[in-house]
């Protein structure tokens, strides 16, 4: 293929389309051979209705929790919950997306899809934690920020960007754990952390496989293919350097044993916090900014850089 591309062409003769056709066919062949059923299983596991949600983890991980509500501007968004948790004889700020377990709760929590108020509440709580030197733990589990007219009018984009900036700015240690669905900007808004950890069966993606398929394949039915192509499983993301660590789940998945899943996260939190708290706040912030600076793959002057 590469040789074909390098063939000198006469003016007016274009091999480009031919090359594209051949390479596409090659990829299709490769792809057919490698269609991986496990990827879609992970997508379904990440969205499993019995999977532990933020409140379940809080219940299992911390002996005490005081929920703090409201963004002090407009409303309280139940799709994001946050508050002070008792943790190893001290305090930690826990903020996370919350999906509902039953129909009524799902409706109330908007299926875990936050509005701008959710992100503004999160910022308020993070700033509060920063003031008193309280570390921040975020638990990420959302299909994405809510796409609605009112949410747009109240500045969904700015709420997310300011949440990102707020996390970039914090002096306290921050740990983000992707516990289920890490859906696009709505997930990332809580994930600009010193340590980004992912559960084995969680997914984290720039776009849902369904939307990706609808846009690129013009067919939502191709979601399985899109899921594989997007490389959204924990193994893929770890390989790409997008997450710092992957945590194993209890046998069969986190939904089988909430308490065991919680204790796995608790242990990881402890280890990471110990490392992070040993650092000077300014050094920790530098390291955080530098870490995200490294994100990207490009070539410069013909050299591919990771």
């Amino acid at each position: 293929m590469t040789e074909l591309k390098r063939l000198p062409t006469l003016p007016g003769v274009h091999l480009r389309n031919e090359i594209a056709k051949i390479s596409h066919r090659l990829i299709e062949l490769n792809h057919d051979r490698r269609l991986d059923k496990n990827v879609w299983d992970k997508v379904e596991l990440a969205r499993h209705p019995e999977r532990p949600y933020t409140l379940d983890y809080i219940h299992h991980m911390f002996p005490g929790f005081i929920e703090l509500r409201g963004d002090r501007c407009f409303a309280d968004d139940p799709a994001i919950i946050g508050g002070l948790a008792a943790y190893m004889g001290r305090t930690i700020m826990v903020i996370g997306h919350q999906k509902g377990r039953d129909l009524a709760a799902r409706a109330r929590r908007n299926f875990g899809m936050p509005r701008p108020e959710g992100y503004r509440k999160a910022q308020r709580l993070m700033n509060l934690a920063n003031k008193f030197g309280i570390p921040v733990l975020t638990l990420i589990d959302t299909a994405g920020a809510y796409p609605g007219v009112a949410a747009e009018e109240r500045g969904q984009a700015a709420a997310i960007s300011q949440s990102l900036l707020c996390m970039a700015r914090l002096d306290v240690p921050t740990v983000a754990v992707i516990i289920g669905e890490g859906g696009s900007g709505g997930a990332l808004a809580l994930a600009l952390a010193d340590r980004v950890i992912m559960l084995e069966n969680a997914i984290y993606s720039v776009i849902s496989p369904e939307s990706c398929a609808a846009i690129l394949w013009k067919d939502a039915e191709e979601a399985h293919l899109a899921a594989q192509t997007l490389r959204l499983t924990s193994a893929n993301l770890s390989e790409l350097g997008a997450v710092d660590a992957v945590l194993p789940e209890p046998r069969g998945g986190a939904h089988r044993d909430h308490a065991a899943a919680a204790s796995i996260i608790k242990q990881a939190l402890e280890e990471n916090l110990r490392e992070l708290e040993a650092m000077h706040p300014q050094a920790r912030k530098r390291q955080r900014l530098e870490k995200f600076r490294q994100m990207g793959v490009w070539s410069e002057g013909g050299l591919t850089l990771f």
Binding site: L164, L192, S205, R231, A242, M295, G296
Partner: peptide, 10 residues
């Protein structure tokens, strides 16, 4: 994929 999402963080 995820790398483009992380450009928002970057």
């Amino acid at each position: 994929g995820i790398i483009s999402l992380l450009q928002m963080a970057k």
